[in-house]
């Protein structure tokens, strides 16, 4: 017990001081919170504008898509808050921060992950959470222990999947100095995809964002399972229960890419 506490202490010390530092520039923190809130709000508005023109899209009404949006955006915001700074890896490499990580007796990836936390994302998560709660109330859901379990699994797995995406992207940054947009296409494109009704996707999109980057597992699939809706081709409703498997797959891929990237950085082959 004491051993684990000792192991966690350094990360806690860094994160606590990061949080203090962010809140110390009060006016700036307020602007950050506002803009981050607006990000979530505008993303919701974009979905709403589409549904304002039509009654149903991909078999979903606006009420139903609100559930998908809330779940996906909340999970993404939390993942972004905890892991989003992994995006800065290229900067860390240039500034030599990564070399400094090597001089400390902790795993490099853990140091990277705990090197920062962006509290401002909390306001964006609040948008997602509000949408989620409202959607859970106004949708016709047959509440049961299994529905609660399904939702919990989806929340935890969703956060894990988006977090894995950031780590995956960081691993590839070792190869793509200056080419961060390549991975952004899938990390941020993934978020965009996760808020859509996957029924509208073409087959290639189903392969890419349904399975390879398991975005459909973060919200769409659990929601059709929860609402008892039929799934489209290739994406049956029972897959909604498999989000933990998707999370494992995403993390496996992320860790593999990270290891590969680190090897490349050290120049030990790969």
């Amino acid at each position: 017990m004491a051993e684990t506490r000792g192991a966690i202490a350094p990360y806690r010390a860094i994160l606590a001081s990061r949080m203090r530092a962010q809140r110390s520039y009060r006016s700036n923190f307020r602007i950050d919170l506002t803009s981050s809130f607006l990000v979530g709000f505008v993303e919701l508005a974009e979905v709403w504008v589409l549904f304002h023109n039509v009654h149903e899209l991909g078999g979903f009404t606006f009420t139903q898509i609100l559930l998908v949006f809330g779940l996906a955006d909340f999970c993404f915001s939390i993942g972004d808050m905890l892991f989003g700074h992994c995006d800065e890896l290229t900067k860390y490499v240039r500034a030599g921060t990564l070399d400094v990580f090597y001089l400390r007796p902790q795993p490099i990836l853990l140091q990277l992950i705990t090197s920062d936390i962006s509290l401002k994302r909390l306001s964006r998560a609040a948008v997602g959470l509000t949408a989620l709660v409202i959607a859970l109330v106004i949708n016709d859901i047959a509440w049961s222990p299994s529905a609660v379990l399904l939702l919990s699994l989806a929340l935890v797995s969703g956060i894990a999947i988006f977090s894995a995406m950031f780590v995956w992207a960081a691993g590839l940054q070792f190869f793509l100095i200056n080419g961060a947009e390549m991975t952004n296409a899938f990390v941020y494109g993934g978020r965009y995809a996760a808020t859509q009704p996957a029924a509208v996707w073409s087959r290639p999109l189903k392969v890419v964002f349904g399975f390879f980057f398991p975005m459909a597992f973060t919200a769409y699939l659990p929601v059709i399972a929860l609402l008892g809706l039929p799934g489209p081709a290739w994406l049956p409703a029972w897959l909604g229960w498999c989000s933990p498997v998707a999370a494992l797959w995403a993390w496996g891929m992320a860790l593999l890419c990270w290891r590969w990237g680190l090897r490349h950085y050290q120049g030990g082959g790969g």
């Binding site: 023109n53 899209l57 991909g58 995809a193 509208v200 996707w201």
Partner: peptide, 11 residues
């Protein structure tokens, strides 16, 4: 682009 195609065409 492809994601926009999917959702906007459907709309």
């Amino acid at each position: 682009g492809f994601l926009k195609v999917a959702i906007l065409f459907a709309t």
